[in-house]
Design a protein around this nucleic acid. Structure first.
Length: 276
DNA sequence: CATATGTCCTGAGAGC
DNA sequence: TGCTCTCAGGACATAT
């Protein structure tokens, strides 16, 4: 479930490793199907051994480490992946251990194993994750940018917000939260939104994501998401609608949160403050 | 091109 | 207790 706030929390949690060099890489094989490592493990290892970590970046929902030869290691956690600097929740789903200067370790752990770790050279990175393939970062959106990319579309706004080609970083959870703050019904077609609504929406995108980063993301009831120190996030205690079906809306207090399904995903909204 | 749907994966929880 | 079934939603492949 890691979305922009969780992934940004991961990035911040590994920033202090910049300057260290990679002294070993281990890809343990458990009883589960192994995750995708690109290129295959031995080439990946050869490609990164001895390299120095030059910087960290975040591209939408991916954690990026730039190496001193301008290659990049990209962690794509998808549903249940974690980037850690402390011991992982269990050894069972540990997928990769990167040793730094022979002392510290960076781990990639993934319970369901849908995530991918990729080593890119500069050109392939631009090709796969450049602006042609991924929209602008959600933290950077302005009303003009958002309207320019979405306003002509016939799709429902919640589904469009989750499309990484249009804007990068928003997933299922934060799409619901953002639309509640903006007071927009999730099933509203993009081409039916007004100029005022694009302004309110752009503001809500940045506000909700920044607030969630402050609380280090959301750890849901399954407990999977952890920060890099294997501690829970805190934003779940501030959710306005997500996973709060039948609970009173905190904004209007006169309606209960409802759940609907859009594009096979749960959407939560308040029928009082989010009218179509 | 735009949009919609199916698929991957594991473990928690429901229902019997 | 223990079995089977459904569901959670990242990104991409395939279909319309």
């Amino acid at each position: 479930m890691p979305e922009l706030p969780e992934v940004e929390t991961m990035r911040r949690g590994i920033e202090h490793l910049v300057g260290c060099s990679i002294t070993a890489v281990d890809m343990p094989r458990g009883r589960h199907k192994s995750i995708a490592i690109v290129p295959e493990p031995s080439r990946f290892r050869r490609g990164v051994l001895g390299k120095r970590l030059e910087g960290t970046e975040r591209r939408g929902k991916r954690v990026v480490i730039r190496l001193d030869d301008q290659q990049r290691i990209v962690f794509e956690p998808r549903m249940t992946g974690l980037v850690l600097v402390a011991d992982p929740p269990n050894k069972e789903h540990l997928r990769m251990q990167i040793q730094l200067d022979g002392q510290q370790s960076l781990w990639y752990w993934d319970r369901r194993g849908l995530g991918i770790v990729t080593l890119y050279d500069a050109q392939a990175y631009e090709q796969d994750l450049g602006p042609e393939r991924l929209g602008p970062d959600a933290l950077q959106v302005t009303p003009e940018l958002l309207a320019e990319r979405l306003a002509e579309r016939k799709r429902e706004i919640k589904v469009a917000l989750m499309d990484q080609h249009l804007v990068a970083g928003i997933g299922n959870l934060y799409a619901s939260e953002i639309l509640h703050v903006a007071g927009i019904h999730p099933a509203t077609r993009c081409d039916h939104l007004s100029g005022r609504q694009w302004r309110v929406l752009a503001e809500a995108v940045v506000e909700v994501l920044q607030e969630a980063i402050f609380y280090e993301g959301s750890t849901l009831s399954d407990g999977t998401y952890r920060n890099t120190l294997n501690k829970s996030g805190g934003y779940q205690n501030h959710h306005r609608v997500y996973d709060r079906k039948d609970q009173w809306c905190s904004k209007c207090a006169g309606h209960r949160v409802e759940r609907m399904v859009q594009a096979q995903r749960s959407t939560f909204f308040c029928p009082g403050c989010q009218r179509k």
